[in-house]
Simulated assay, not measured.
Amino acid sequence: MRESLPRSVRRVAALVRHDLRLHRADLTPLVTMTVMPLLIMAFVRPLYLSSLSTRYGTPPDGVPFTGAELAVPGVAVIFSFFLAADVGYGVFREHGWRTWDRLRTGPARPFEVLAGRAVVPLLVLLAQLTLLFSVGGLLFGLRVRGSYAAIAAVGVCLALCLVAFGFVLVALCRTVMQLNVFSNVAALLFAGLGGTLAPVEQLPGWVQALAHVTPTYWAMRGFTGAVLDGDGLGGAVLPCLVLLVIAAVLTVAGLNRFRFEDRKVSWS
């Protein structure tokens, strides 16, 4: 066991380095998924400002709201879901290049292949969330009344949840077109149900009931708790735990459905 662990780590690291080279060769997706949400934040910020005034009235600390308190986390969560499909692109790319069978019969074990395919999408999601909160905060005057550590913890748990969701999409989809469609539909559906487009309390009752089973709701609850309500790291414990539970459930579902021998149809 002690001898196999380093070899296992080296095999996973080799897959990660390969994925990193491919991502560095084309940074367009990450750049697009960072610039577009920043533009959207500029448009929706006045609408969120109106929601904040209705919800809170006068800010408890006397510092005026800017609208960024909901615009930045809301738009960041929405666009993070669009990147969940990045998990599947690595698998579909291997099928398109006719290298999947060689990867299957190579020295890397199935769990090492899946682990290697998860690391880079996880890093990309964390980079996107970090950029959107940092740049969006600077551009639109986001003021965090609570803990930055709480925001970071929720961001990590959300990214893990999205990687697990990406594996479910890979397991269910046969073609890359299906992957694109289902990931985009899921992003918009979770956005509407989870309170990223409008505060949950302003949504219809049936939506409020469904919101609690969506990862977007718990991500927004964790982010807005730190940004608006002044929550510390302790306030992020419940959202983080729920996101991790959702991630675990999605991981089990994806692993139970995923078959290495399934044929996937890429662009080519």
Rank of each mutant, 00 (worst) to 15 (best):
L197G: 10
E201N: 11
V200C: 11
A198L: 14
G194A: 08
L243A: 00
D231K: 03
P204I: 08
V185R: 06
V213M: 15
R221I: 01
V227H: 05
D231C: 02
A236R: 03
D229L: 11
T214R: 01
G225C: 14
G192N: 10
A198M: 15
M220D: 11
A209R: 15
G192E: 08
A198C: 04
R221K: 15
H212G: 12
A186E: 09
W218T: 01
A236Q: 06
Q208T: 04
G232E: 03
D229C: 00
T214S: 07
L189D: 11
G194Q: 10
F223C: 06
L189I: 13
L189N: 08
P204F: 00
W206H: 12
W218Y: 03
L203M: 15
G192W: 12
G222Q: 10
L238M: 09
V185A: 15
F190G: 00
P239Y: 07
Q202H: 13
L233A: 12
L189F: 13
R221L: 10
P199A: 14
L193V: 06
H212D: 12
T214E: 03
L197D: 04
A211H: 03
L197A: 11
L228K: 04
G235Y: 01
P215R: 12
L203S: 09
L238P: 00
L210R: 01
T196G: 06
M220W: 02
G230I: 03
V242D: 14
G192L: 12
G205T: 14
